[in-house]
Amino acid sequence: MKKNMFTLVLGCFFASFVQAGVVAYWTFDEKDPGTQATLGETVLDTSGNGINLEVTAKSDPNMTFVEGNPDYNPFGSAVYFFPPSTGQVLIPAAGGPSFDLGVDYTIECLIWLAGPITTENGFLAKRGLPGEYWYRFDEPNGRPNFLAREYVKDGEVLNSGGKVASENGIGAEQWTHVAWVRDSVTEEYRVYLDGELVLTEHDELAGVSYENDGSVHPVQIGAMDPDYDSAAKRFHGKIDFIKVSDEALSVEEFVQPIGKPSDPDPASNSVMVPIDKVFGWSSIEGQNIISETVNLSDTEDMSNVLESAVADGNSISFSNLQKGQTYYWRVDTLIDFGDDGTTIIEGDVWSFNTPSCVITTEEGDLDGNCSVDMLDFSILAENWLRSNEYE
């Protein structure tokens, strides 16, 4: 039997944004990966505002909890909306709970679209009087699309006054942080992908709150409209979290990934790196770091580890580097996440190669830089002075 797509519907009343800060924060961490969603179960709003979600569907919900994005939360789950059948989505009656967007807001989400992207992936929507709004990710590249319409400003009904469609898509089967920002001060809509501004557009409805009575349907996540008897209007993919704020946030205020070690010294792909080089990096910021382990390999996939050592600080020297070789190295960070436990965050793989020298140490290249220069004479002079100490 084919399963029909479900939607998540708000489980308690919330009329408007009345306080600055986080309004709702759904992390979808209630269940372990591999757990099937069940009808009527609750997805908690972790902001503490009690705007919980309820799973509803025509039959068994076509959703399961899966592994989330470890770059943001190594312990969390995500919800996976499987590509559904053509069955109609059902939601509670018009008298259900309400949720409205104000004159300023930021909607952040961590999204993974199932490929190929051949649909209008309805992400979040609410329809009623006096207007409606929806968010979706459109074919062919998953470009963020938003529309608010039938709202009144200065006595005029604007049917498409809030349309924002970015040409930049998030692509298929890769995690992307998406942020829609509405700013009443600048009268702009802004769209960010992984913290990069990809669209700025004038807000023709600036100053108008997107309130409606939900008489067609209350806010729902996972589909645009229950009246569409088509899979083309439903979300296909994974959602790690959704965070709604009642402010126009800056990039620095977005939910941030845990991060990885950065700024390698020498820079990745460096050439002619001396074999006695002291290697350095910038550690992950804002985390309780227990230790950093540095791994050296001669294979890009780090399958053949030549050296592995816990660093004292954020620098290290390798003891057995050979000339004329290409090496790969990575810094893995053990982090304490408190009650959640500890986990290792693997860093990026950086590479370098050492010089291939015609001249040898015996021939005068004392510093290993493949040339006889003043530094070699300095080393020779220092060695001569040291040797005289014992005469």
Rank of each mutant, 00 (worst) to 15 (best):
L158H: 15
N212L: 03
Y210H: 10
S59A: 14
V244Y: 00
I284D: 03
E150R: 14
E167C: 01
G259R: 04
T293Q: 05
S308H: 09
L110K: 04
D376F: 14
D154S: 06
G222S: 00
S85A: 15
D365S: 02
T106S: 06
T106K: 01
A20D: 08
G34P: 08
E139L: 15
A381H: 05
P83S: 12
N121I: 06
D104L: 00
G207S: 06
E363N: 00
T299M: 13
Q88L: 14
A381W: 06
E54I: 10
K243Q: 02
E150G: 11
W175E: 06
D348N: 12
V191Y: 10
T27P: 00
G313E: 04
I335L: 04
D246L: 00
A148M: 10
I316T: 04
S283N: 12
V219P: 12
G338A: 08
A78E: 06
D225G: 09
E54S: 14
V43T: 13
W26S: 03
T46C: 06
E132Q: 11
S371D: 07
Q174C: 07
E292I: 09
I170M: 13
L8P: 01
P257I: 07
K58R: 05
Q19R: 07
Y105T: 00
Q88F: 11
T56D: 06
E41V: 06
E108V: 05
F146W: 08
E188R: 15
D194Y: 01
T326W: 03
K126Y: 07
T7Q: 09
A311I: 05
E201D: 06
G195I: 04
Q88T: 09
Y72L: 01
T361H: 10
V294Y: 01
D154K: 08
D298P: 03
N212C: 01
F279N: 02
W112E: 07
L385Q: 13
E382T: 11
A165V: 15
I289Q: 03
C370P: 03
K243D: 00
N73A: 05
E363I: 08
T299N: 12
S297V: 11
D100H: 07
D312S: 11
R386Q: 15
P274K: 10
